[in-house]
Design a protein around this nucleic acid. Structure first.
Lengths: 187, 187, 187, 187
DNA sequence: GATGAATGAGATTTCATTCAT
DNA sequence: TATGAATGAAATCTCATTCAT
C-alpha cells in the first residue's frame, strides 16, 4: 500500500497501474492481486486507511473548550495531518476523483453528501450561540465552513505542485485569518 | 470538442477514450485523430479554449473603479463563468490533473507557478494602499487570495457532485463574506 | 471465424484463446476484438452462422411427401450436413457446452428447451396417423425421437475422435434401422 | 473430490479452478495440490473413480441368462447408475472433453477406441446366434449398439439441462423400444 | 498435513495511433 | 475530409504451481 501511495504521488492515478506498483515494490503483479482482489479494492484500502488515521489524529479537536480554540485546533490539526501524510492525502484525493463504478459515477461520492462540513458548521454555530463569534445567517455559516475547508484542502494541492509552499506558515496565517473573520467585532 | 467535454463530464477523464468520444459524436475514431494529432492535443485544445473564453469573460473585472467593487466583481464574474461553462470547467479540472508528460510530471503545471493568485493579490494590495481594506501582512495577503480562489474553485466541484448546490446563493454569500473580511474595521 | 473454428477443432474450446486464434490467422489479437467486441460475441457468431447454414441446408426435408421418406431424408440430410461442416459442428458443440453467463449457467441453453426434438416428433406422429408407422405411446414417440437425434449427433463426436468412422455407411445403417423400427409390422 | 465434482456440476469445467474448489471446500488451495500433484491428476482421479464405481455397479449385467434380459438389464442398470451418480457422470463428461495433453489431443481418448460399444455388441451377437434377436449385418449390429449407447448417454445430458426429465420413465421406454427393435419378428 | 504467500504465464479487453482507401 | 481496418502496447485479472513455514 505504501508503494502504491508513492506511485500515485509520483505518477498520478492513471499511471499507477498494478504493473508499475509491483515493479516499484520489486514484487510480481500477482502479489498485488493476491492480497487485494482487485485494483479497486487496493485503492479502497488506501482510502479507508487514511480515514482511520484521520479519525484518530483529529479526535483531539473535540477536547477544546472554546469555539475559538476549537476552530484554531481544527485548522491547525488538519494541516498537520495533511503535512504528516501528504503523499497519502494526495493519493486519496486522486483516487476519490478517479475511481468510478460501472455506470461512470464516482465511487467515493454519495450524491449530496456534504458531511465533511458538519464539524466546522457545529463549531461555528457553537461560537455564535455563546456569543464568542459574530453572527452569520444559516447559509452564511455553511459557506464559511466550506471556505475554511477548501482553504485547508488547498494545502494538499500546494504540497503536490509547489515545492516552495510552507505549510506551517500557511497554517498560522489561516488561523489568524479565520480568527479575525469570526471574531465578534463590537462588544 | 464539445462532445469530448460532455464525455469527460459524464464518465471522467480516464473513461473518456477517443473511441467513446467518437461514438457519442456519431463519427469515427479516425476523424478525431485527423483533426487533432493526438489525444493530448485534443485535451490541450479544450484547456486553451476555456482559458480564452475565460480571459474574455473575466476582462470586465478590470473596469471596476474601487478595490471593493473589483473584489465583488471578481468573485461574482468567476462564479458566473463557472456556472455558464460548468461542464468545460470540470473537464479542464480533470484534464489538468490527469495529463502528464513522459516523466510523469503534470503537463499543465509549471512548478511554483502561482500566477492564478496574482490578480486577487493585486486587488487586495490596492485596497490596502488606498485604505479601503484593512491591512494584512504580505503573506497574509497571499493566503487570503488563496482562500478566496479556493472558495471559488470549490463551486465547480460542488456543481459536479452536489445536485442541490445553488451557485447564485453561494456567490452572494461569498461576496458578503469577503467583503466583511476585507472591510476596514475602524476609521 | 473459420480460423476460430479450426482452432477449436484442433485444440478444444478452452485452448482456443483469442491469442491462439490470432496467431494461427497471422493477425494481431486486436483485430479479433476489433471485429468482435468480445470473445463471447465471436463464439455466438459461430453458433448463429451454423444455425443459419443448417436451416437452409435442412429445409428440403419438408418437401418429402410421406412420413417414411421424410424420416429417411431427415436422417440423411442431417448427417450430410454434419459431414459437410464437421469442424463447425464440432466447434459449436464445444461452444454450446462451455460458454456460460456470469451466474455459471450455460449461455446457449434455455432450461427445458427440447425444441430440437419437435420436427422428429411431428414426422413420427404423422406416420402413426396415416398408418404407415406402427403406433407408439406419446412418451414412446418422444423417446424414439430422442434416440434418433442422439444417434445422429453421435456422428459428430465420432468424426472428432474416430479417424476410421465412415459417416456414409453410418447414414445408410441408421436409415435402415429406424425404417425397420417404425415399419408397420402387421397389415 | 466430491466438492470438485459439485463445482464442475455447478460452474462447468473451465470455471472449476482449484481456487474455486478449495473455497467451496473450506480449505486452502495448497491442500488440493498437496493431495493431487496437479489439477489434471485430480481430474484423472475423478474419472478413474467413476469407472471403478461403474465397473462394480454394472457387473451384475453379466449374470443375466438370456440376451433379451441382459439387454434390458444393460439399459436399466446403466441408467440407474447415471441417475445415482448424475453429478459425477456429468463432471466426467466435462473432464473427458476438456482435458488435453500438450499437443492439444484429448487426454482421455485413444484414437479409434470404441471399446465402450463392445459389451453391447456382444449381447446383440449372442441374441442373433441363439435366435432370440432378429439378424443384423455386422455393421448394423455395431450401429445399433452405438444407437443404444448414445440414447443412454443422452440421459446424463438431459439430467443436466432439463429439470423435467424423468429418467425412470425414460428407462422403461428405452427398454421397450429396443426390445421391440431386436425382437425376432417371425418364428 | 496444512497454510498462505508468491510467482509467472496467459487470458480478455481497451485504446491511442497509423494507414490505405 | 472521413472511414474503418489493423496494430501493438499495456492494463486488469485468473490461475496452476511452488515453496517456506
Amino acid at each position: 500500500m505504501d508503494i502504491a501511495i508513492e506511485t500515485i504521488w509520483d505518477l498520478g492515478y492513471a499511471q499507477a497501474s498494478i504493473g508499475q506498483i509491483a515493479k516499484r515494490a520489486g514484487i510480481s503483479k500477482g502479489v498485488v492481486t493476491y492480497h487485494f482482489s482487485s485494483k479497486d479494492e487496493l485503492m479502497q484500502n488506501i482510502v479507508v486507511d487514511l480515514y482511520m488515521k484521520g479519525a484518530s489524529f483529529l479526535s483531539k479537536i473535540e477536547n477544546e473548550s472554546t469555539p475559538s480554540s476549537m476552530l484554531k485546533c481544527y485548522i491547525e490539526t488538519n494541516l498537520e495531518f495533511i503535512h504528516a501524510h501528504k503523499e497519502q492525502v494526495a493519493a486519496v484525493a486522486e483516487i476519490v476523483m478517479n475511481v468510478r463504478d460501472e455506470e461512470g459515477k464516482l465511487f467515493f461520492h454519495k450524491p449530496g453528501d456534504n458531511a465533511i462540513y458538519e464539524p466546522l458548521i457545529e463549531i461555528l454555530q457553537w461560537g455564535q450561540e455563546d456569543g464568542s463569534f459574530r453572527t452569520f445567517t444559516s447559509t452564511g455559516t455553511r459557506v464559511l465552513a466550506m471556505t475554511i475547508r477548501s482553504a485547508i484542502d488547498l494545502a494538499s494541492q500546494q504540497l503536490v505542485t509547489n515545492p516552495d509552499f510552507d505549510i506551517t506558515e500557511y497554517s498560522k496565517e489561516l488561523i489568524q485569518l479565520f480568527e479575525s473573520t469570526t471574531r465578534q467585532t463590537h462588544s
